[in-house]
């Protein structure tokens, strides 16, 4: 699960293609918004121009892909942490700060071998306590400890 993966030219080309696609979307939508005239530029002129430039730069960046060789990275922690953040967002209103933070820390512990489930639960409680003192009591943020469960 925590093994290192070689990330090389193909992945970098995929990212350059992603940028190219973003440029194409910007140019396409810019055209649809309306380019206007030189003395009365439309809302689409800048997105269109920037999209075309981004497509060109992405193509040039693709030519540089793989120039520095492949790198080794662990992707598993990232893949476990992001769902944790998304779950925190989905749970903060219905379940509240404690529950959402507990799920976040448990997701993190799945990717971090030095944090077992019990330690993750304790860490979540500590973070929730800190969050309660700093954000709820200190800054009066509109966050509940137990959400809609209260």
């Amino acid at each position: 699960m925590n093994g290192f993966l070689a990330i090389g030219k193909r992945a970098e080309l995929a990212f350059a293609a992603f940028l190219f696609a973003l440029g194409a979307i910007s140019a396409w939508n810019g055209w649809a918004y309306g380019i206007g005239q030189w003395n009365d530029i439309g809302p689409g002129a800048f997105p269109f121009g920037l999209g075309v430039v981004l497509m060109g730069l992405a193509a040039l960046a693709a030519r540089e892909a793989g120039a520095s060789g492949s790198i080794e990275r662990r992707l598993a922690p990232a893949m476990m942490l992001l769902p944790g953040i998304i779950l925190w967002a989905l749970l903060i209103e219905p379940v509240g700060l404690i529950g959402a933070t507990l799920v976040l820390c448990l997701c993190y512990s799945l990717a971090e071998e030095r944090l077992n489930l019990v330690q993750a639960a304790l860490l979540a409680l500590a973070l929730s306590a800190m969050g309660y003192v700093v954000f709820i009591l200190g800054f009066h943020l509109n966050i509940n400890l137990l959400g809609d469960l209260l």
């Binding site: 942490l81 944790g84 993190y108 973070l127 969050g131 943020l141 966050i143």
Partner: peptide, 11 residues
């Protein structure tokens, strides 16, 4: 450290 940072980012 990292769960703390992520928690602060979320809040």
């Amino acid at each position: 450290l990292y769960p703390l940072i992520i928690f602060l980012i979320c809040v």
